[in-house]
């Protein structure tokens, strides 16, 4: 299983005068679910691109299973670590949903037979089989997102990085994406979620790495970090609603019943009003 080790990583864009990432060190081991949190422009996407070799460190190193990313091609890393761009429309080019999934499989040398079988399975898992022959651009926002994730998960990378999965998603779409990501976590794969949606992150990830202005200001159990007032404020975040609720009520495992709780709460509020 995959292991990512980041050591004293500094990164500067070629034309920028300042570092976008400064002195970042952490390791992510197999099966971990990690949220990378932080305000806009904190450097989350830049960090993600350093993890999968799209960007190479200016100083320091990123090692995948012991090998420096400078010595690996992006394709080699991508086979192990999938990366889903925040904008699914930046990847669609095929006429049909199934061919969109086939693209990655072909690049990684799957036989046509194996690809056909995989496409069927993955579209099924992601609830997209009815759109198999449809044009990807005609899908809804949530379906596009799921297709983007599906087209990467198809080759079964050991780790998956998703950039801003909830951007522009409505509540039902978010639940769907959450379900998909949680099932990937439960398979023992590593999932790295980049977001500033704390509730979403809390419902998927055990661990959080909090970035602010290019530096790591917190790394540890998500629940602990997001209960820390100063840290939460410094990162321009907010405490996750469910964790607050659990603290107040002394109950645990509430997020399993998230939908039930939110509808109950709506009822309670309505009663209070009237």
């Amino acid at each position: 299983m995959v292991k990512i080790v980041v050591e004293s990583l500094y990164f500067r864009y070629p034309e920028a005068s300042d570092y976008a990432l400064r002195n970042i060190s952490f390791r992510i081991v197999e099966g971990e679910s990690v949220a990378i949190l932080g305000e806009n422009g904190a450097g989350k996407t830049t960090l993600a691109k350093n993890l999968n070799g799209l960007l190479k460190p200016t100083e320091g190193s990123v090692k995948i299973d012991g090998v420096d990313t400078r010595n690996l091609s992006v394709a080699k890393i991508a086979r192990k670590i999938g990366f889903v761009n925040h904008n699914p429309e930046h990847q669609f080019f095929a006429e049909k949903v199934e061919d969109e999934v086939r693209f990655g499989l072909r690049n990684f040398g799957f036989s046509e037979e194996a690809a056909d079988k995989t496409i069927r399975e993955v579209l099924n898992v992601f609830g997209l089989e009815e759109y198999r022959g449809k044009n990807p651009f005609q899908l809804s926002g949530g379906e596009k997102k799921r297709l983007a994730i599906a087209s990467i998960m198809a080759w079964r990378p050991e780790a998956l990085i998703v950039d801003e999965p909830t951007i522009g998603m409505d509540y039902a779409q978010k639940l769907n994406i959450r379900r998909v990501l949680r099932s990937i976590v439960s398979e023992g794969r590593c999932v790295i979620v980049i977001t500033h949606d704390v509730d979403f992150a809390a419902s998927i990830c055990e661990r959080a790495i909090i970035l602010s202005r290019g530096e790591v200001i917190g790394d540890g159990r998500l629940r602990d970090l997001l209960s820390d007032d100063t840290l939460v404020e410094k990162a321009s975040l907010r405490k996750p609603f469910l964790i607050e609720l659990e603290k107040e009520t002394g109950l645990t495992g509430l997020e399993e019943d998230f939908d039930a709780i939110s509808s109950t709460l709506v009822e309670v509020f309505q009663k209070c009003r009237s």
Partner: peptide, 16 residues
């Protein structure tokens, strides 16, 4: 910028 983002995305899908 958009070109860069698209190119990065497709490289992450194994395009060389």
């Amino acid at each position: 910028d958009e070109f860069q983002s698209i190119y990065d995305t497709q490289r992450s899908r194994g395009l060389e």
